[in-house]
Design a protein around this nucleic acid. Structure first.
Length: 746
DNA sequence: CGCGAGGATATTTTT
DNA sequence: TATCCTCGCG
């Protein structure tokens, strides 16, 4: 069977052009993953290329996983030697092998954004900078940008010139690097730029990888930053078989350092590059596609292309205006419910997309009270939760004793009576002797002024050493359980706050099962499950990776997260000037930024296969205050004839160019104001209905742990009922009904 | 040293 | 509005 059978002419051309640089400009839904996977198959089957010589790079684990799967299916045995990976995990794998060449230990820790923040705070304090003038957020952004552009602290200083603030920033950058190095830690940006550094300073290592990766493919090329571009350029430097796939119209990560020039000037960098445009869209209806084309047409400086489809017109695009954001949420949830009840679609066919994560809350409330399964992608990362971070810090400490941040996080968690004073003493001592925090702890006996604190520190060290010994012979899961046991972590959580503990325990259970899954996966793959390996996998997961196609739920996420996905029915909510495009881009008066927002809009529209609903609210609460917004300027770029706007005509702003038809007849519904919200960590839906309690004040109830007691008070809290119970043996406790699972007795 | 109260602060997007 | 951080007290 021919690998190119089901491809159109353009796609086939892209598959068959295997030698030399190739730029594939692939519009939304034009089947670029199909092309990439078929190209891999073609290389192996028709050109006799050893799978070992092929590298495919994506941005997310999810994309990598999908590509892996499709390649496996298409190629069959032998495909496992193809290297399919994200930029970040590829770099980690390379660095684990060679990073000692540039002065780090191979068991380096990866710092997430939280860790970076903690470290930055220390740096700023150390340099005695005014926190009003130098905010850690801004400083981290500066450093991150510098790293994206491969600017070293030295170069940064040179560029700073005489500028006071920039000179200080250079100090911060330098100090930050120093501390990272001392902690044997790398941040996300480091993973890329240290790899580039490695390649540049060690040609023999580079040569090794150039020989291995003779055919390189990069997905979502429009999102690459300078460091990533350089990395790819180096790797492809010898054989020059570089195939990049991207769509400049979908470049939405400029804020993260993505350099749109990488795609716009690919032909300048590689003059012999072949350029192929994929313009046939297989995803959306013609109306949806026209809307997308019309919107994006307003951008300047793009590679001209026009998507077309033979999928047919499809339904009109629905546009709805609402008085408040509550009404908007209610309408969308109701709309989904009706569609599913009519048997026309499943929950999973629907996605709600919005500009900012904060907008998810209202939808979540509505979904919970409607009992509809949903999944929110993004927001607070699972691995950023306090309890999970604590456990991670223990594992990190055992794995890499140089990670000061991790050690300091847990030195007094659970409480061991080691206070700030002691910690500072140790810190001073460590600094004076130029050793790490944990090293200093080991020498607690020699640290002056510790007093009784010293013995506590010693027993902490003994505990960690004990775990380190355990780690030698136990698997990770056993080690983690041992740590939980010996530290009494769970009990300390319970003492702290009974009602929160329940949620935290659930998260810890999930964490434990992640460990188990990792060990199973390793066993399946015939690899050794290592602590470093697990920590690394954990550090590199993205929220989007958790999306499972086979479960049936409505998906909610930001427009950014939605890139690369498709849904039958897409709702774009919050289409208001000030929300989308965001307030900042409107006021910045920078056309570049507005164009990026427009691309985001283009991405959103093109996610829809059959139906698209655009909504906006005239009034919306944004961080505590009410905002009145006009409809998004992007809506006015969609030709009115594509839209269905319901019969009621109301031109609400005479100054607008187009008079759209709007419905003002939203049902007045009071109950949205007191919508029940799920307890924060419980992301499951509808299962616990605490809307009604079967006990009241004065009733006798029973609790699993505290036994019997009398209810003395019930308060309707923000999220749940807060129940106060006077327990016979334990005294008075306050708890949330959903977690306490009280049973009425007597 | 630990805890609670109250104030400041944030919200654009995330590998 | 919701979280985080600092400060002052016990």
């Amino acid at each position: 069977m021919n690998a190119t059978e089901t491809l159109n002419d353009r796609q086939q051309e892209a598959v068959r052009h295997t030698e030399g640089p190739l730029l594939i400009l692939a519009g939304a839904g034009s089947g670029k993953t199909r092309v990439l996977t078929h190209r891999v198959a073609y290389l192996i089957r028709e050109c006799g290329v050893d799978p070992w010589h092929i590298l495919a790079i994506t941005f997310t684990n999810k994309a990598a996983g999908e590509m892996r799967e499709r390649v496996d299916r298409l190629v069959g045995p032998g495909s496992e030697s193809v290297w399919v990976s994200t930029f970040h995990s590829m770099c980690v794998r390379i660095l684990r092998r060679h990073i000692d060449l540039i002065g780090y230990d191979s068991n380096f820790t990866i710092y997430d954004t939280d860790d970076q923040k903690t470290l930055m705070k220390e740096v700023l304090k150390l340099l005695e900078l005014d926190p009003k003038m130098f905010k850690e957020r801004t400083m981290l952004a500066k450093i991150s940008h510098a790293k994206d552009e491969l600017v070293t602290p030295e170069e940064f200083r040179l560029q700073a010139g005489d500028d006071f603030g920039e000179k200080k920033a250079a100090d911060v950058y330098e100090q930050y690097e120093k501390q990272m190095h001392a902690n044997n830690a790398l941040d996300f940006d480091d993973l890329l730029c240290k790899t580039v550094e490695l390649f540049k300073t060690h040609p023999e290592v580079l040569d090794n990888y150039q020989e291995r990766f003779r055919y390189i493919m990069v997905d979502e090329y429009q999102d690459t930053n300078t460091a990533q571009f350089e990395l790819v350029r180096l790797l492809a430097g010898k054989y020059r078989n570089l195939c990049v796939v991207g769509d400049d119209d979908q470049s939405i990560y400029k804020f993260r350092g993505a350099n749109i020039q990488n795609i716009l000037s690919f032909e300048q960098v590689f003059p012999d590059a072949k350029v192929i445009k994929l313009e046939q869209n297989y995803r959306s209806t013609s109306r949806i596609l026209t809307a997308a084309n019309e919107v994006i047409r307003h951008n300047e400086g793009r590679k001209e292309k026009t998507l077309w489809t033979d999928n047919g017109d499809g339904e009109k695009i629905t546009l709805r205006e609402f008085d408040t954001a509550y009404d908007e949420a209610e309408y969308i949830v109701e709309d989904i419910r009706e569609a599913v009840n009519r048997g026309e679609a499943a929950y999973r066919d629907h996605a709600i997309l919005y500009r900012t994560n904060a907008q998810s809350r209202l939808f979540e409330e509505r979904f919970v009270s409607a009992g509809i399964p949903y999944k929110i992608v993004g927001g607070i990362n699972f691995y950023a939760r306090r309890e999970v971070k604590d456990l991670l810090a223990y594992l990190k400490t055992v794995d890499n004793g140089k990670d000061d941040l991790a050690v300091r996080r847990i030195v007094n968690v659970p409480k061991r009576g080691i206070g700030l004073t002691s910690i500072n003493r140790v810190q001073e001592y460590a600094q004076k002797k130029g050793i790490g925090f944990y090293e200093a702890l080991k020498e607690a006996a020699y640290i002056p002024n510790l007093g009784r604190g010293a013995s506590k520190l010693e027993s902490f060290v003994a505990l960690i050493e004990h775990f380190k010994a355990d780690a030698e012979e136990m698997d990770i899961l056993d080690l983690m359980n041992e740590i939980l046991e010996e530290t009494g972590y769970i009990d300390s959580l319970k003492e702290e706050d009974e009602l929160e503990a329940e949620a935290r325990m659930e998260n810890m259970d999930e964490f434990l099962s992640k460990i188990a899954t990792y060990e199973e996966d390793c066993a399946d793959a015939g690899e050794e499950a290592t602590l470093s390996g697990f920590l690394e996998e954990v550090a590199l997961v993205a929220d989007i990776d958790s999306l499972e196609e086979d479960s049936d739920y409505v998906v909610l996420m930001t427009l950014h997260s939605a890139k690369g996905l498709e849904f039958t029915h897409v709702y774009l909510a919050g289409m208001e000037d000030g929300i989308f495009p965001s307030y900042l881009t409107i006021t910045a008066d920078d056309n570049e930024e507005l164009e990026e927002e427009r691309r985001l809009c283009y991405v959103g529209i093109t996610r829809a296969k059959k139906e698209l609903t655009l909504t906006y609210a005239r009034k919306r609460m944004v961080r505590g205050e009410t905002q009145y917004n006009k409809m998004s300027r992007f809506l006015k770029e969609i030709p009115p004839e594509l839209l269905s706007t319901e019969e009621t005509f109301t031109t609400w702003d005479a100054g607008e160019e187009e008079a759209f038809a709007f419905s003002r007849t939203q049902p007045e519904n009071a109950f949205h104001k007191k919508a029940y919200t799920a307890p924060k960590a419980a992301r499951s839906f509808g299962s616990k209905d605490s809307g009604t309690l079967d006990y009241g004040v004065g009733d006798r109830v029973s609790h699993v742990k505290f036994g019997d007691g009398t209810v003395t008070d019930i308060v309707k809290g923000g999220r749940d009922y807060e129940v106060t119970v006077d327990f016979d043996g334990y005294g008075t406790k306050k708890m949330f009904a959903a977690f306490a699972k009280l049973i009425k007795i007597g």
